[in-house]
């Protein structure tokens, strides 16, 4: 679905390449985490997939198209097969939830009746049923991200790119967003997510591609985030920030918040929608992840993967089956898992 062949990207002549001879192959229906410090090339990777940039060297293939040969008037059709979600949501502040999602279909010229049926469907899927008329500023961060995901997914793209979609959200809300992305992945959509959130990566147990100064240093399936301190740059002791320095004590005091009731409600609604879809046999069975070639650039022992700071707890999140009819249980479960993950971290 996405193939990078020895791709390099140099923004300014003489500058350090943002991507340096990167080869990655993402199959249809895969869920891939892209991890690495700021400036490691994650965003460049996503921009190349979207053809917002052209590679300086190498080939990029997306959805069967050779992007280096794609003429610019065909770029819109490429982008119609890709959905994108950002850390800052990028909703239109003067449009309602419904209008924001409908906008994505309007501007590609979809007929009105298609819009009026598709938008409520996708809003129900993300758990925002009944909030169509709200403005973005009336929603919590988690709900706004759900709108953004609905907008990205409303045209049923083959690929969903997410650039730190949980970067602005608290852990519990993030978990809800991840369950949503997972659900989208199960419909057969390829998901590539750039993130700094080790907790989420560890819990999801998906394929992880780690970039460092523009090179792939790790590509593992069913993987964990890795040693946080080796991925993120040392910034000294900052208990509030997510990135403690190398010498910081093992125990990190994270800011703990109680999730917004609205986010929990959205999560409940989304789970209920998924359950309904599963009951009516609408939903595709969870796609078995194709075995991606694990490109090991380095011997494993050189990487601190084995000493993951978090013990994998319980079954991977992807295997959880929501109990139909008891959405409250789901929320409780989310909260419990959150607690468990934190306990694991502090252990």
């Amino acid at each position: 679905m996405i193939r990078f062949e020895n791709v390099s990207k140099v923004y300014a002549r003489g500058a350090r390449p943002a991507l340096d001879d990167v080869s990655v192959d993402v199959s249809r229906g895969e869920f891939v985490f892209l991890v690495g410090a700021s400036g490691s090339g994650k965003s460049t990777f996503l921009r190349l997939v979207l053809r917002e940039e052209r590679p300086t060297g190498g080939r990029v293939y997306v959805a069967g198209r050779d992007l280096s040969r794609l003429s610019s008037w065909k770029v819109p059709s490429l982008r119609r097969s890709i959905g994108v979600v950002f850390q800052d949501f990028r909703l239109l502040p003067n449009k309602t939830v419904h209008e924001n999602v409908a906008f994505a279909l309007q501007v590609i010229g979809k007929p009105r009746h298609t819009i009026s049926t598709t938008v409520p469907e996708v809003l129900e899927m993300v758990g925002l049923d009944g909030k169509e008329k709200r403005m973005p500023h009336e929603l919590s961060g988690g709900e706004q991200q759900r709108v953004a995901i609905a907008r990205a997914f409303v045209n049923r793209p083959q690929i969903l790119l997410a650039d730190e979609p949980t970067g602005n959200l608290d852990p519990t809300t993030s978990l809800g967003i991840m369950r949503l992305l997972d659900r989208i992945n199960r419909t057969g959509t390829t998901v590539v997510m750039a993130t700094h959130d080790d907790e989420i990566v560890n819990e999801m147990r998906k394929r992880v591609v780690e970039l460092s100064t523009g090179s792939v240093v790790r590509d593992e399936i069913d993987a964990v985030y890795g040693h946080r301190e080796s991925i993120l740059p040392a910034v000294g002791q900052t208990p509030v920030l997510d990135a403690p320095g190398r010498d910081a004590p093992a125990v990190v005091h994270r800011v703990q918040v109680t999730p917004e009731p609205a986010d929990l409600e959205a999560e409940r609604a989304a789970e209920a929608a998924a359950a309904r879809a599963a009951e009516s046999g609408d939903q595709q069975p969870a796609a078995a992840l194709p075995a991606a070639p694990a490109v090991e650039d380095r011997p494993v022992d050189q990487r601190p993967v084995a000493q993951a700071p978090v013990e994998p707890v319980g079954p991977p999140a992807a295997d959880r089956v929501p109990e139909p009819g008891s959405p409250d249980d789901v929320v409780q479960q989310v909260l419990r898992e959150h607690e468990r993950v934190r306990a694991g971290r502090e252990a």
């Binding site: 008037w73 119609r80 239109l92």
Partner: peptide, 17 residues
């Protein structure tokens, strides 16, 4: 810019933008 940025991302054609 916000609108046009989103339009470009979701694949609106140049003319439409």
């Amino acid at each position: 810019r916000r609108e046009t940025g989103i339009m470009r991302l979701v694949g609106a054609s140049n003319l439409f933008v």
